[in-house]
Design a protein around this nucleic acid. Structure first.
Length: 618
RNA sequence: GCCCUCGUAGCUCAGUGGAUUAGAGCGCUUGCUUGCGGAGCAAUAGGUCGCGUGUUCGAGUCGCGCCGAGGGCGCCA
């Protein structure tokens, strides 16, 4: 907001330093952490430390030996000297040297006006970063097909979607990709049991069918697992079942028409359900990769790697492997050895991921590739990325595994195979139910017809925020009461700030066709003594663009989630302490309405990046 | 055995090597609705930042060692 002034002062500091032989460290500016007045500061601790270190040998006669002065004290001296050099800078009210810091305080009315103008002119684009040349692909949400999606899948989906929105808004050309696991032993297990015991008995309804398949999966798994004290009869039966299952997998692989058709139809059921869930979460994928589709091309890649001397072929006695540590010349085992093809020639997860990466680079021209996959696959991705590097892809250095902790239940890990899951759809339905209960008590003014739609926005907002407000690498023990809480640091708290801002604007007639009123930059406002609540709110708003860049560069939606809360918190405090419509003076009311409009816009932008709706009423 | 992640208030979690005082929420205690929506605001209490040791002018933050929790390690995904 004050880049020009800041640059001017930076130049003065640099000029002073070179004139006096100061070993000036890089100048880092940060907001001054005091409420009531705002500005930026930089410190001279590093410079003083540099000076002390550089002061080896004897100091020149008549000069001081800086090695003997404590760093904080010397930093303060420098700050004071620099302050003396700066003089008057328009826009800066005062300059202060304090505890080794140089503080610049901005002219409040000018600063406030600049922030408001920028937000209200840019609107939904406020905070958008300059377009960058790199193309980023975010791959997220890789559920297995043939059964419903559980709450664990919500994490990769929400994390990935939020990250994609952040990265895109930060200025990158962004591609959203999903990679459902539509084939594998698990899928075949369901297919086998469905075909043998339940064919044609599937229930109506997309979600009912998915849950029904999930039950079949758990049942089939139990049938196929060895039991304790198994009789020989039971054992024989189990082995027969298992043979049938494996035979079905073989047939699938051999493109048997019956098995393929059975697979295609049932697969479509779950894709239908998956699309429904993505619609509910407002996720629009650009690219759909399927495991079944990269299977064939992946095998050719193995041949190429063998030919290049990267992979070693131990068939038929052993598999095809890449001795990564050896190839990198590492003595300690770190990346180890990766198996990239079974000895019988069938592909593995690793084989397919190599094929997928190649496709991402060559077909989609991706410069940077982010994989949102849970933390148990860290080694797998480190290995894949290293092999891509050995293979010669420069983009390999910009592949990033965004690993996240998994969601567990209080009674332990979730397991689709054992039917021990909490379904995402069930949680979403429960969320809506709970919001409706609150609404009927608190929001009598909302028409019946709109309640359901708003309840979805609030309920999903609560769920989404509870997941995004935990850092990537931390596990979440799922507790529905906590996930759907509406009080305190939650999605609804932030949404409520947006609703309140909207309510004020509505009463002032500043919505709809009246918006031009507050876009005007000709108004001479904020020319009064601002309260600390106004200052805090304006400062929070002004931080949004930097927060977008930080969240994007660290691949962390949490940064945005924390910010959104801080902003909402600042707004709620302002709301209580500062009258807007009741302002005695017309110009103060005008300025505060602009502030409310800017806060509403920034809240909406931040929520959008978190994949949370910003309702007008709730 | 080797590698990765984590350990901060009773609980759940934030916290770019820098400001005499490490922050939120939940829960506990207490105020606030004749003001724009109380899904809120304000206040109180609650800490050997796992332990030790280095690096540094300065460490919750970086290194090393230990303790504890979880995960991974050639033909699962």
């Amino acid at each position: 907001m004050f880049q020009k002034e800041q640059q001017l002062i930076e130049d003065k500091i640099k000029a002073y330093s070179s004139a006096h032989g100061l070993p000036l460290a890089e100048l880092k500016w940060q907001p001054i952490p005091f409420a009531g007045e705002w500005g930026v500061s930089t410190s001279f601790f590093q410079t003083a430390a540099n000076e002390a270190r550089a002061g080896s040998g004897n100091p020149a006669k008549g000069t001081r030996d800086y090695r003997k002065i404590p760093v904080p004290q010397r930093a303060q001296e420098i700050a004071e000297q620099v302050k003396g050099e700066i003089g008057n800078v328009p826009g800066i009210t005062r300059v202060e040297a304090l505890k080794g810091y140089l503080n610049l305080y901005f002219t409040t009315s000018e600063y406030a006006r600049r922030v408001m103008d920028e937000v209200l002119a840019s609107r939904a684009d406020f905070g958008r970063g300059a377009a960058k040349t790199e193309r980023v692909m975010v791959e997220y949400s890789q559920p297995n097909t043939h059964h419903s999606i559980h709450i664990g899948h919500a994490r990769t989906t929400l994390l990935g979607e939020s990250l994609a929105r952040i990265v895109e808004f930060a200025g990158f050309d962004t591609i959203r990709a999903t990679y459902p696991g539509d084939i594998g032993l698990g899928v075949i297990t369901i297919l086998w049991a469905y075909d043998k015991f339940y064919k044609g008995r599937e229930p109506e309804g997309v979600h009912e069918r998915g849950q029904w398949l999930l039950k079949i999966y758990a049942e089939a798994t139990a049938l196929l697992e060895p039991k304790e004290n198994e009789t020989s009869e039971e054992k024989a039966k189990r082995e027969t079942y298992d043979a049938e299952r494996r035979e079905m997998y073989r047939k699938w692989d051999a493109h048997d028409p019956y098995v393929r058709e059975l697979w295609r139809v049932t697969r479509e059921w779950s894709l239908e359900e998956f699309r429904d869930i993505l619609r509910m979460l407002d996720v629009n994928m650009d690219v759909w990769f399927f495991e079944s589709e990269v299977d064939e091309p992946s095998k050719a890649i193995v041949e190429e790697l063998i030919a290049k001397g990267i992979a070693e072929d131990e068939r038929p006695q052993g598999p095809v492997i890449v001795k990564i540590d050896e190839k990198l010349g590492l003595t300690k085992e770190k990346y180890r050895t990766m198996v990239i093809l079974r000895s019988d020639g069938t592909s593995l997860y690793s084989t397919k991921d190599l094929a997928l990466a190649k496709q991402k680079f060559e077909e989609y021209h991706v410069d940077r590739s982010i994989y949102v996959v849970d933390f148990r696959q860290s080694l797998h991705f480190q290995q894949v990325f290293k092999i891509l590097e050995l293979w010669g892809f420069p983009q390999a250095a910009k592949c990033y595994h965004l690993s996240y902790g998994y969601i567990t239940l209080p009674e332990g890990a979730m397991s689709a195979r054992r039917g021990r899951v909490v379904l995402l759809k069930d949680v979403a339905d429960e969320a809506v139910k709970r919001v409706l209960a609150v609404e009927s008590e608190k929001s009598g003014n909302i028409p019946e017809a709109e309640r359901e739609a708003i309840a979805k926005q609030i309920g999903l907002g609560a769920l989404t925020y509870s997941i995004l407000s935990v850092d990537n690498n931390k596990d979440i023990v799922f507790n529905i009461d906590e996930a759907l809480s509406f009080d305190g640091r939650t999605g609804p708290y932030i949404q409520n700030a947006h609703v309140r801002a909207n309510s004020i604007l509505k009463k002032a007639g500043w919505l709809g066709g009246q918006v031009d009123k507050y876009i005007s930059t000709q108004i001479n406002d904020f020319d009064y003594e601002l309260t600390k609540h106004e200052i805090e709110l304006i400062e929070q708003i002004s931080r949004f663009p930097n927060t977008v860049q930080q969240a994007a560069s660290e691949y962390r939606p949490l940064v945005m989630a924390s910010y959104a809360y801080d902003l909402a918190n600042a707004f709620h405090s302002f709301y209580h302490a500062v009258p807007v419509l009741q302002s005695a003076q017309a110009d103060v009311k005008q300025a505060r309405l602009r502030l409310v409009a800017a806060a509403k816009q920034t809240l909406a932008n931040a929520l959008r990046l978190l994949d949370i709706k910003a309702p007008e009423v709730m």
